[in-house]
Amino acid sequence: MPLSVKHLLGINELTVEDIEQIFKTADNFKLVLNRPIKKVPTLRDTAIANIFFENSTRTRISFELAEKRLGAETISFSASGSSVSKGETLIDTVNNILAMKVDMVVMRHSASGAPWFLSQHIDAGIINAGDGINQHPTQALLDAFSIREKLGSVKGKRVAIIGDIMHSRVALSNIYCLLKLGADVMVAGPPTLIPKHIASLGVLVEYNIKKALEWCDVANILRIQLERMQKPLFSTLREYSLYYGISKDLLDSLSKKIIIMHPGPINRGVELFSDVADSKQSIILNQVENGVAIRMAVIYLLSGKRELNEQM
């Protein structure tokens, strides 16, 4: 069954059926990834451009691997050292790449809404790999997929998203995805890092980290994004780590064992301490592994190819 959308711009554009279809397809790809030969030739005639206007290591590698394991040809470039630094516009940059017969674009961009803007000006399929402080839909999908894998389903589970909610595209796309799949969602952190109107999305808001951890089944800890902060939003990293950082002592003081997630990269000793990040409660590396399967599923489903079962 194809997806109801041509692009993956944000989570809201997807139906619940779309998300379930992505998960089922990712289940199959996860089997492929655990075989000795980790590739299928499904997209051998497809060219995909990974255009990263913002620095990225894990997302870019994850997409590239997903594309290569589907047999696609890939090209990747980042903004620095490209024509963008010479003043070329986004539309020109992407159209020049498409003129070389590229079928799909994976784009990360520092401006919220940039993929929506691009989708109105080009013909190729677009996958949003993160736009500004708005969304990071494949991260939300892989996070929900990881919760489903660990707890059996997402529906009815309590997920607390903790930390810098205001500057996090992971937070917003996770909220949309988790609510869509029937989870209860709470956001927690210093009030200056939580958007004033966030409760209108249907989430709970908590400023006390211990209370948030007591409430939840899963805690998704977000990175403090110092590079995005234009105003003074909290005092010092020291104070943040003391009062909002997740330590082993704090986890052990809870009445139950909760699951710890983090989209990476981790500021160890700030929002998350190493003895938590590397503990058995953490599924951070499972998230990374699932990222490849989810991205394979999204790319495959958006490509419109219909021959997966024969090749698997």
């Binding site: 919220s112 809404g113 736009d131 500004g132 402080i133 708005n134 969304q135 595209r169 917003l172 958007p195 004033k196 109107h197 966030i198 209108s200 999305l201």
Partner: peptide
């Protein structure tokens, strides 16, 4: 509400 939904600074 709209800036929150759209992920844009308000």
């Amino acid at each position: 509400i709209n800036s929150t939904k759209l992920g844009m600074a308000g």
